[in-house]
């Protein structure tokens, strides 16, 4: 599986993503600066966590206007996999590759801790190696992860099996609607999630629950 990680000014999980990808796939991902106009020939594009453009205006708003995002959109439209983690999820909603918006955490606090999640949907290139309802623990680290969409959109996401990850009951760290932690686009090739699977692929870093996400991708895209 060939992959690329987009680097925005003030991305700070780009190297975490690169390390995880290298560890899982055995080959180094391309690091693509946001001013590039084209993506290399890859199967997966990762939009990493961080604070792109200092979160100016709204989280992900500036990054969504970057030159590279046009290429990322084209890649997604052609069915290529795009994984947005944390700030990457915010960029995907601002780019309208995913519906809804990520608002300030309900208690206004930056939250940085491991959270319990439930794998709600295994019919996706990202989660096929998990079992339905499986409980996993991924870390979160964000101030704006409160997923919001109107009821019609939320019903549609649930009805179409596009809510892939939910915060475990009682462990919603940010007030997200219906405990939503991660969603797919309609074509199911774009995933955005607030928690960090790339930080749990090595037991030395506190867990390996994220490995299956990368294994799912490798199995499908290699």
């Amino acid at each position: 599986m060939k992959s690329a990680v987009v680097v925005f000014p003030a991305s700070n999980c780009d190297r975490d993503a690169a390390t995880a990808l290298e560890q899982m796939t055995g080959s180094k991902p391309h690091m693509v600066w946001h001013q590039e106009k084209d993506l290399p020939d890859v199967d997966l594009v990762v939009l990493p966590g961080g604070f792109s453009y200092g979160d100016y205006l709204r989280c992900g708003a500036m990054a969504s206007q970057s030159a590279i995002m046009r290429a990322v959109k084209e890649h997604a439209e052609k069915g290529g996999a795009v994984l947005g983690i944390c700030n990457g999820f915010q960029v995907l909603t601002e780019t309208h590759l995913l519906p809804g918006a990520l608002m300030r955490n309900a208690d206004l606090k930056f939250v940085c801790r491991p959270v319990g999640l439930e794998v709600n949907e295994t019919q996706s290139v990202y989660t096929r190696k998990y079992s339905h309802g499986e409980r996993v623990v991924f870390p979160v680290a964000h101030g704006d992860g409160n997923y919001f969409a109107d009821d019609e959109t939320l019903n549609r996401l649930e009805g179409e099996g596009r809510v892939v990850f939910r915060y475990a009951e009682g462990d919603n760290p940010n007030g997200s609607a219906r405990n939503i932690a991660g969603i797919l686009n309609e074509k199911r090739n774009v995933l955005g999630l607030m928690p960090h699977p790339e930080r749990v692929v090595d037991p030395l870093l506190g867990g390996t629950d994220g490995r299956k996400l990368f294994e799912s991708l490798i199995e499908t895209l290699s």
């Binding site: 205006l57 709204r58 708003a61 206007q65 909603t93 601002e94 519906p99 809804g100 918006a101 608002m103 919001f148 969409a149």
Partner: peptide, 8 residues
């Protein structure tokens, strides 16, 4: 296009 996110 940019100044407001009309979703919210």
């Amino acid at each position: 296009k940019l100044l407001a996110n009309t979703v919210i």
